[in-house]
Design a protein around this nucleic acid. Structure first.
Lengths: 134, 134
DNA sequence: TTTATTTACTACCTAAAAGTAAGTTATGCA
DNA sequence: TGCATAACTTACTTTTAGGTAGTAAATAAA
């Protein structure tokens, strides 16, 4: 990224004054309300690798139930973040792909991924201590 | 950011092969399990503005209940992402500040913030349609 | 016609998250 | 001691997330 663009980008957050209110009129609260949950972010991250079938996702996103997978895909479809293509085959084949809107999340999600890698030891220690419970 | 660093950073995600499994041994699943929820991310984003008191956060993070605020702050304290300083005054004053670990989230959170601003119209349309319900 | 296979949906249930409201602690000073 | 106030906690209730199991659609091949 060019230094110029970087400066512009960080400035959004720095432009907030200390009395900025984060309500539903604030776009960051809106976006967190829509996508800030574990399964949604994991599925989006997985789809960044490319087109996937339902069964691929079921294999890759360990721990997700078939119901949550279908439900989350349906929501992302409704949001326009993924597209769905059905192949008239037997057995049926359905493929999910990120739309341009979905792909726009590559940067924030990569950023989170990098952060996780950088702080891996610390994060694992916390996770063990809390056993995933907050 | 220098182009070199940028390349290194994006490569974490690109280095995954298409059969990578996202289970609890995968660091991205661990980090999402710990912090991927609306209130946690909103409080962290707010604290990126600097030190805040409980009552400041209550005023800025619209919609959060006092219980959720206390609870989330307690969790972040346990994670070592924020520090807590009590001033022996009347009435009591307690200030919360991001630790170095907490500050390390500036980049991913800024990235999300920028994304939200870039897609503001689309996000608001979705939010209205769904009324925040998934 | 029956079978096989993937996807998706529904109904029912349990567990966890989160809201409400009331009460408690901590604090320094009068 | 009593007070005033911010910060915090607890008990209770409601809401939402999530799991399991069963079923249906699709259709080519047996």
């Amino acid at each position: 990224m060019e230094a110029e663009k970087k400066i512009k980008k960080i400035s959004y957050l720095e432009s907030l004054n200390s009395r900025t209110v984060f309500d539903e009129n604030c776009i960051i609260q809106v976006s967190f309300a829509l996508i800030a949950d574990k399964w949604t972010l994991l599925i989006l991250t997985t789809l960044m690798q490319g087109t996937k079938r339902n069964s691929d996702l079921q294999k890759q996103v360990i721990g997700i139930s078939p119901k949550m997978l279908s439900q989350t895909l349906k929501t992302l479809l409704k949001y326009g973040m993924i597209s769905r293509k059905v192949y008239p085959e037997v057995p049926p084949r359905v493929e999910y792909t990120l739309t341009e809107f979905g792909k726009s999340l590559v940067e924030p999600l990569s950023s989170f991924y990098n952060w996780s890698v950088d702080w891996e030891d610390k994060l694992r220690t916390i996770y063990k201590k809390t056993k995933g419970k907050k």
